[in-house]
């Protein structure tokens, strides 16, 4: 069966059966989180924008925040046949696009906070994080293929790596 390619936009969250290729384009401070169960042959991705949803309305997309995206992604995985001990995670993103020496602008370091919060949530839920490519000051385009369960990370000027 041919591999279907699905492109996820900002704050999207999706879990689908293999074979599939999950893609997110041009991640800056955002995070692309991949979870998969290679035995149940199911994979999911979330395009996370911000670390935490505290104090916000419940009407927003769950994929937007790390603290809501991680549990939602895992729950969706379990519904589609995955079991928690078999779920593995990989993540990329969380860059700081601009550095302004001497300026206090908290939103510029949101990438690092996204990474920290996502990792913490995964650890709390007992999900093994196998690989990550985070931080730095360059945007990333990512592709996860269920053909080899690898996450391809393309960075401008640095080429492609597979994690």
């Amino acid at each position: 069966m041919a591999e279907q390619t699905i492109v996820l936009g900002m704050a999207d969250l999706m879990v689908v059966p293999a074979p599939v290729k999950l893609v997110t384009l041009g991640l800056g401070s955002c995070i692309g989180l991949v979870v998969y169960d290679s035995f149940a042959k199911v994979a999911g991705m979330a395009h996370i924008m911000l670390p935490d949803s505290r104090g916000l309305q419940g009407s927003e997309k769950v994929g937007k925040f790390a603290d809501t995206a991680v549990p939602a992604l895992i729950e969706e995985m379990l519904k589609k046949g995955a079991t928690r001990p078999r779920i593995k995670a990989k993540l990329a993103g969380g860059a700081q696009m601009f550095a302004l020496p001497g300026a206090s602008a908290e939103f510029l370091t949101v990438g690092a906070k996204n990474v920290r919060e996502t990792k913490m949530k995964l650890a709390k839920m007992g999900i093994a994080l196998l690989a990550s490519d985070t931080g730095g000051n360059k945007g990333r385009t990512i592709e996860f293929s269920t053909s080899n369960w690898m996450l391809k990370v393309k960075t401008l000027g640095k080429g492609i790596s597979e994690i």
């Binding site: 384009l25 041009g26 991640l27 800056g28 401070s29 696009m97 360059k138 945007g139 990333r140 401008l156």
Partner: peptide, 10 residues
Amino acid sequence: HDMLSSILDV
């Protein structure tokens, strides 16, 4: 210098 969408994440 980067992809437009990465820049606009800010």
